[in-house]
Amino acid sequence: MAIKSERAESIIRLTNLTKKFGRVTAINNVSLEFSKGLNIILGPNGAGKSTLLRCIDGLYKADNGRVSVLGEDPYLSNGLKTQMSLLSDNYALYDHLSVIGNLKFFGRLDGLKDAEIDESAKRFLKELDAMQYINSRVYQLSRGTKQKVAFCRSVLNDPRILLLDEPTAFLDASASEVVRNFMLNYEKEGRTVLFVTQKLDEVTRFNGRVVVIRRGSVVKDVTIEQLYGSMLRDIDVSIRLATPISLKLAKSIPGFQEANSAKPTMVKIRVRDYKSINKVLSYLIDNDAYIASVDYIEPVISGLSSGKVGD
């Protein structure tokens, strides 16, 4: 396929993109550019993340504005799809076909030979610890295994541009790690990975660009460091403790909100910014507490939903 005009830095370009469904505006005048490497879109439910990916993949026609991938309109260019792959938020597999039946079907549509499909499918399924299900019907599989098979399908055609919608949803820790390593390897190979998630925890595992969207509009376009600096303000964090502490100690923590019991193993604290978290943790450590984890995901995501996002 001939690539018309590919700028070195910009693989995907959205110009004043608007997508509506009836009266609902899912994407509202978004202009963005994505280059090679790992790009993340973060946003709460209903922010328009999946719609954005579908517009980039050419599944939806833009109501206004323009989408350009490798210099072409993905809605009009079928050939572009040989270089692009989409993992949707539902696994989108045929329940009554076997795992290998599904992979062969999609592989054939991608123009691959059966031998190539067999080889790649077995390799990916082994890596994701799902090889034992190769001949199982999809309806017999757990949600997590379906997600693994769907991920195999999305990388089967060795895409240059990989669009992933919540790729680690429903996966166990080990499979999630394999998927993350895939993404990192793709980044190292100079491919373009664009993945959307609603989990800040997922985002912070990478060190890349993060676009935050809410209600169809871009709220932020930042690095992970900037994200911490701008978003972790006046938020609640949950601190899990490996051993219980006294309620008196819990209540003495600056910004204390609530504890999970009279002998707390988890306390909720309100902090001004991410630097305050260190102070709280130091205070706890100085008082012989053992920290298991610090969790700040939910408050940030709910903040995004309500528009409570720092500048």
Partner: peptide
């Protein structure tokens, strides 16, 4: 209905 079309239409099929 089964939401399988998304993966189907993401392939280079005319």
């Amino acid at each position: 209905e089964r939401k399988t079309s998304e993966a189907l239409l993401a392939t280079p099929v005319s």
